[in-house]
Design a protein around this nucleic acid. Structure first.
Length: 296
DNA sequence: ATAGAGACCTGTGTGC
DNA sequence: TGCACACAGGTCTCTA
């Protein structure tokens, strides 16, 4: 699935096209996503104007009729969710690059019919994605958001707050970084890549990065910088395109060309001073890629 | 409370 | 070509 950089890239593609348009109708072709769509989902959105497309962690937030505190459409892409535009005949040149008239497939589960004959199509083969509605002004109280951790971007990620969350935890760094209640937005790729950049073993217990006095250790500070940097680099590259993920205009991200360890088992560790070889292990049922020589 | 396993669902790639 | 199996960007629920 898309992790934070992919969701942010999708947000940047959707926002200029969606903002200012109205939702004329919502077509539920297959409403049993990961969770059933809430009752009244389509009716709550039809006739609304889209004012802003935002993001929190891996969630897209479509704010409607902000002045009247209209509902916020919350969307999670799961592992294979994607969007594309179809059908408009009168797009501006800037919007035209999103034009795509592929026939609808069995995995096109929800279609938002917008004004001007433009359709936004949500496709999700595995149906791990889902949609929900949130009340404007009360997003942080919504069950999906109430327990989310720190954004891994910029100053939002503080080493001292992370130290409090890591303290005493014996779970491996890999598992703790994947926990959305600790840092919200990382997934399997960027956890592997951040740990490589920080030269930390994914097997190391998270609590070992906290000093006796509860302050962050030098290792934890290194990890915070690695997480920030890898996320910033990935967003700048338009995310990573592996199997399913493409942007709404069909273009692909390029960060996969910069992977140091993810999906690179048996390749040499790219650190110039290191003679290690990338290995793959399984943690919490997920593949972890790392260099056992320089990541300690 | 916390760590790990299994479940959810479908598609794709690999090896026999 | 067909078939079985492993694995995939996530995260919720259950078990120790």
């Amino acid at each position: 699935m898309p992790e934070l950089p992919e969701v942010e890239t999708i947000r940047r593609g959707l926002a200029p096209v969606l903002e200012g348009r109205s939702i004329e109708a919502v077509e539920l072709r297959r409403p049993d996503l990961r969770f059933p769509l809430p009752p009244g989902f389509a009716g709550a959105l039809e006739g609304r104007r889209i004012d802003h497309v935002g993001r929190r962690a891996k969630y897209l937030l479509v704010e409607t009729d902000a002045a009247q505190r209209g509902p916020i459409l919350v969307m999670h892409l799961g592992m294979t969710g994607s969007f594309r535009f179809e059908g408009a005949l009168n797009l501006t040149p800037a919007e035209g690059r999103y034009f795509d008239n592929k026939k609808k497939t069995i995995h096109d589960h929800v279609v938002f019919h917008l004004d001007g004959g433009l359709d936004l199509v949500f496709n999700d083969a595995r149906r791990f994605g889902f949609m929900a509605l949130a009340e404007a002004g009360h997003l942080e109280e919504h069950p999906l958001f109430a327990h989310l951790g720190l954004e891994p971007t910029g100053n939002a990620l503080s080493a001292s707050e992370l130290a409090a969350k890591f303290a005493g935890r014996k779970a491996p760094l890999k598992a703790v970084l994947m926990d959305q209640r600790v840092i919200a937005g990382l997934g399997n790729i960027y956890v592997c890549e951040a740990l490589w950049r920080a030269k930390l073993s994914p097997r190391r217990a998270a609590g070992t990065l906290v000093r006796q006095d509860g302050q962050p250790s030098a290792r934890l500070i290194r990890l915070v910088e690695a997480v920030r940097d890898v996320i910033a680099d990935a967003v700048a590259a338009g995310g990573s395109s592996l199997r399913d993920y493409v942007q709404a205009d069909g273009s692909v991200g390029r960060f996969q060309e910069s992977f140091a360890v993810y999906d690179r088992e048996a390749f040499p560790c790219p650190r110039p001073t290191c003679a290690g070889v990338v290995s793959r292990i399984v943690q919490s049922g997920r593949s972890t890629f790392y260099c056992p020589v320089c990541q300690r």
